[in-house]
C-alpha cells in the first residue's frame, strides 16, 4: 500500500487534512559510503500533528530526524519545513534550526551554565531577546515543566528526568514551529519517564507539531496522531495510531510490536 493510499484510508477529520504540512519529507535517501541508512523515505507532518517514529535500533530513525533540521545531510530527495527547503544551499540553516526545537536522548544540557542560563542562551544570542525577556520566558517554561525552583541549579545537580524537562523547556523557549524528539525517555529510569511523557503529552494536546522517535508505545497509542514504522532505512508503515496498533500491515511491524509490548 502506498503512503497516499494509507492517508486516504485514515479516519482523520477533514479539517486536519487541509492543514498545511509543517514538515514534508519527500523521497530522501542517505548513505554513509556503501552503507545505505535512509532509502527513499517520505512522510509528512501537518501543523499540530504529533507523529511517532518507531522501529528497531539502527533502522535510521535518528538520522531521519536529524535530516529535518539539517544536522545531517542527505544525498537525494527533499525536506521542506514550513515552506523552507532544508537541503537547499541558499537556506539559512541556523535561522531554520532556531525555529525547530530538538530534544535528545542524553539531554545535552550545557553543564557549565545554570538551568536558567541553558534556557536563555539561544534566546539572547540567536533571537536577540533581552536578558530580562529571556529570563521571564525561561521561568514561565520552567514552572510549566514543574521545575520553577531549579532555575539556579546546574544540570549535574538534577536527576535525568529533571534534566530532560529542562531540555524541553530550552527548546520551547525559542517558540518553535515544530519539536523533534529523539528517544527522549530512553536514558531515564522508569519512575522519571512518566514526568517527561506528561510534559510531552501536554505539549501535543496544546497543538504542538511533534516528530517523536520513541519506543514508548503508550505515548504512541494514546497521544500520537500517527505512527511511522521504519526498518532498515525504509518507512514500512505510516498509519493513524489506532490502525497501526490494531492491525499493522507488515510482518516486520508485527514482530517489532510483539517484542516491544512484551517488555
Amino acid at each position: 500500500m502506498t503512503i497516499s493510499a494509507l492517508r486516504k484510508a485514515s479516519p482523520i477529520a477533514p479539517a486536519s487534512v487541509e492543514r498545511p504540512a509543517t514538515i514534508e519529507i519527500t523521497r530522501i535517501s542517505k548513505s554513509y559510503g556503501a552503507l545505505e541508512v535512509l532509502n527513499d523515505c517520505s512522510m509528512s507532518i501537518r501543523k499540530g500533528e504529533a507523529v511517532v517514529v518507531c522501529g528497531p535500533s539502527g533502522s535510521g530513525k535518528s538520522t531521519l530526524l536529524k535530516c529535518v533540521n539539517g544536522l545531517e545531510t542527505f544525498q537525494s530527495g527533499s525536506i521542506v519545513v514550513d515552506g523552507v527547503s532544508v537541503g537547499d544551499r541558499n537556506t539559512d540553516l541556523t535561522r531554520l534550526r532556531s525555529r525547530i526545537g530538538m530534544v535528545f536522548q542524553h539531554f545535552e544540557l550545557y553543564p557549565h551554565l545554570s538551568v536558567l542560563e541553558n534556557i536563555t542562551l539561544a534566546q539572547v544570542k540567536v533571537l536577540r531577546r533581552s536578558k530580562t525577556e529571556a529570563s521571564e520566558k525561561g521561568m514561565t517554561l520552567l514552572r510549566r515543566v514543574g521545575l520553577g525552583d531549579k532555575a539556579g541549579c546546574h544540570p549535574a545537580q538534577l536527576s535525568g528526568g529533571q534534566q530532560q524537562r529542562v531540555a524541553i523547556a530550552r527548546a520551547l523557549a525559542m517558540d518553535p514551529i515544530a519539536m523533534l524528539f529523539d528517544e527522549p525517555t530512553s536514558a531515564l529510569d522508569p519512575e522519571m519517564i512518566k514526568d517527561v511523557l506528561e510534559v510531552m503529552t501536554e505539549l501535543a494536546r496544546d497543538g504542538m507539531t511533534m516528530m517523536v522517535v520513541t519506543h514508548e508505545m503508550g505515548f504512541a497509542r494514546h497521544v500520537a496522531d500517527r505512527v511511522v514504522f521504519m526498518d532498515d532505512g525504509r518507512i514500512l508503515e505510516d498509519a493513524p495510531s489506532s490502525v497501526f496498533f490494531a492491525q499493522p500491515s507488515t510482518e516486520r511491524a508485527r514482530i517489532f510490536l510483539s517484542k516491544i509490548l512484551r517488555q
Partner: peptide
Amino acid sequence: RGQTLAAAASGLTLAQSYRYI
C-alpha cells in the same frame, strides 16, 4: 558531539557554540 549538536540545533552559529559552550 552532543552539546555541539544541541547548540547547532538551537540555531547558534559554529562561532557562537565555540564562544559560549
